[in-house]
Design a protein around this nucleic acid. Structure first.
Lengths: 206, 206
DNA sequence: CCACGAATTAATCATTTGTTTTAATCATTT
DNA sequence: AAATGATTAAAACAAATGATTAATTCGTGG
């Protein structure tokens, strides 16, 4: 890794990303960012105008990354339904093992500034017309379960992937397992989730 | 509802609960709390010592409520496995429809102050020896799936209940459905989740 | 009615924090 | 080398914030 090659703007961005994701907007001061970046305080606003604007930059960056990854997964024509589930679960878990705080950061930020999505990220109802939703719909209909919205199934997929990382502190305490065991469990989920998803879809409705 | 019958301490507590849960610790000022409670600024610290202590009070309160509800659900001997799933899902969804911000508040707070759980809330590995975990374990073994930890299944239950509320902003935007439709979906999940859980447990392992 | 303690208020303090300013330094070009 | 513009540093400012103080009001028992 190049320690000195990074420009000042990048150093600020890296520090801000780390702190904002970890602590949120209000709990992070511009002085924290400057110190973490190892640069002078004035440079934060010199390059990014304001703390608010710097935060928005980080937020949009992460949001776009998420949306991009999502749109790839849900529209991949080379995979069938179960394979899509497996691929998406594996991808998300890989990402979450490295950046476990990002989902909480995004969800928290969206409550504070929901408008950012519309203005700065190109986000519409990309889910509605996706290949994945069509395939889920078809699979449900094949089981005579057309009363269930495909969106319910998609929510389950995301929940099974993301929730264990968001709720890790509580879950780990309530179960009493250590960090290594928890990581092992998360890795097991890579392949389990797709099977669970198929089971939910194909089980009989009583 | 009695508007004036509430004591000053309760007024402060109510205001603090609302604001802390909504915005978090750092984003909430003591002046916000005083204004929301309709009382003088000095009274906040007069009754609760410090902002930090007031926050801890709210946090412990919510955490205890959660743990209490959980321990009831997972140890109910009058219900079988699927009935437990159904009851717990129904309970959580009822609570989440009224207080959708509580989970995010708890999860966020636990990252900031994980010690509070140990010191102020009686929390141990209550899950490990619970009736629910034993029943999940038995059901898995009956399917010859003893490789899967029962904790995985429990995580799924919580995720299916809580995640759609935590991630509501993103999910609603990505799908383009309105508030009423979303609430309708959440109500449908009351009964769906238990069936999904059973499907995940009883499906064949390939 | 008075006295005493609790409750409430307005004012103030000491820090913190976002932001700006002004001057100094560095790098590159002429 | 001089000049020019970009970059960095130190200091300062105004507003916000957690906390405290001192005075005032309120309620209740004697």
């Amino acid at each position: 890794m190049p320690p000195t090659d990074t420009t000042t703007m990048e150093k600020i961005l890296d520090a801000a990303r780390k702190l904002f994701v970890q602590q949120g907007f209000a709990a992070t001061t511009t002085r924290d960012i400057a110190k973490e970046a190892g640069i002078n305080l004035a440079l934060v606003n010199y390059y990014y105008g304001s703390k608010q604007n710097l935060f928005k930059t980080i937020m949009v960056e992460h949001m776009k990354g998420f949306m991009k990854g999502l749109s790839v997964g849900i529209n991949d024509p080379s995979r069938g339904l179960e394979e899509k589930f497996a691929f998406m679960a594996d991808s998300y878990i890989s990402m979450l093992l490295v950046q476990p705080d990002v989902p909480l950061f995004l969800l928290r930020s969206l409550r504070e500034e929901p408008d950012v999505l519309f203005r700065d990220v190109g986000i519409g109802p990309i889910l509605t017309d996706s290949l994945l939703m069509k395939e889920i719909d078809a699979a449900l209909k094949a089981q005579g379960r057309s009363l269930i919205s495909p969106l319910q199934i998609f929510i389950n997929l995301m929940g099974l992937c993301v929730f264990p990382f968001i709720a890790r502190p509580i879950l780990q305490m309530a179960s009493g397992i250590d960090d290594d065991q928890y990581t092992t469990m998360m890795n097991e989920r890579r392949s389990l989730i797709a099977k669970w998803m198929m089971a939910m879809i194909t089980t009989e409705q009583r």
